[in-house]
Design a protein around this nucleic acid. Sequence first.
DNA 1: GTGACACCTGGAGTGCGCTCGAGGTCAAGA
DNA 2: TCTTGACCTCGAGCGCACTCCAGGTGTCAC
Lengths: 133, 133
Amino acid sequence: MSFYSPAQVTEKTGFSIDTLRYYEKIGLLEAIERTPGGRRRYSDADLGLLHLLRCLRDTDMPIADMLRFVRLLRGGEACREERLAVLRAHDRRVEEQLAQLREHQRLIRHKIDVYSAPAPACAAEEVSAAPAS
Amino acid sequence: MSFYSPAQVTEKTGFSIDTLRYYEKIGLLEAIERTPGGRRRYSDADLGLLHLLRCLRDTDMPIADMLRFVRLLRGGEACREERLAVLRAHDRRVEEQLAQLREHQRLIRHKIDVYSAPAPACAAEEVSAAPAS
DNA sequence: GTGACACCTGGAGTGCGCTCGAGGTCAAGA
DNA sequence: TCTTGACCTCGAGCGCACTCCAGGTGTCAC
């Protein structure tokens, strides 16, 4: 079992040191262990949780929901079903994000095609945003 | 050529009426035409631009960049190359977003599997966030 | 003409998620 | 021992992208 300094965690998770302290303050992380001198030492478990939080944040879960989720994690077996429900609901949202992103990508690429074409086509496009479907 | 009331544009684009006014104020939209009574009437071209802006916003382009982009649109043929460059760069970011989102989805689904399994597997997982790769 | 309602302006306010600053402490190398 | 740099706390501040408010006007149905 190894431990990590704030700088190392910053490095590994991409969260800034300020963000790590902020997450601890609001209860996303439980009080992190300290060295005798009072410095934080993050455990492997802390790192694992941070990776999950990174994933949830990056997929647009609001902090309030993450807070709810980590409380369910702490609830152990008793909260398993609810925890699963939260994750499944989030998974569906991620699926929707993917679908929408692909759709947006289509429009962007269509625009790239249009602007790459000779000027007249470009002028004719000015009005319609959507690629022919 | 048809025109649309603010309410209709809200409906078609998903931007709130406040956001539409805000976008006009900061110059994302050029001054929208008015009825004799002073009400806005959005054209098809306005709508087309709004659809593109919706797409850029939803793919996380900051408003400052969108501003730069619409100025390139207004620059016409002279700005075509630069406009293309902006879109191509953005397309690459969207591609990265897709890749990352898929990766995050993997972890979320892995967690769902883990929590669905009987308790012991779940306890053993507590420490590692990443699915075996 | 009278309601009701959509819309107008300018400017202030909000919520989220950090981020920074001041002032101090710990720890390792020279 | 001294210096340097990473770290500490607490609280205030910030940037973004809206969102709301007050007070007023246009338009349409009845």
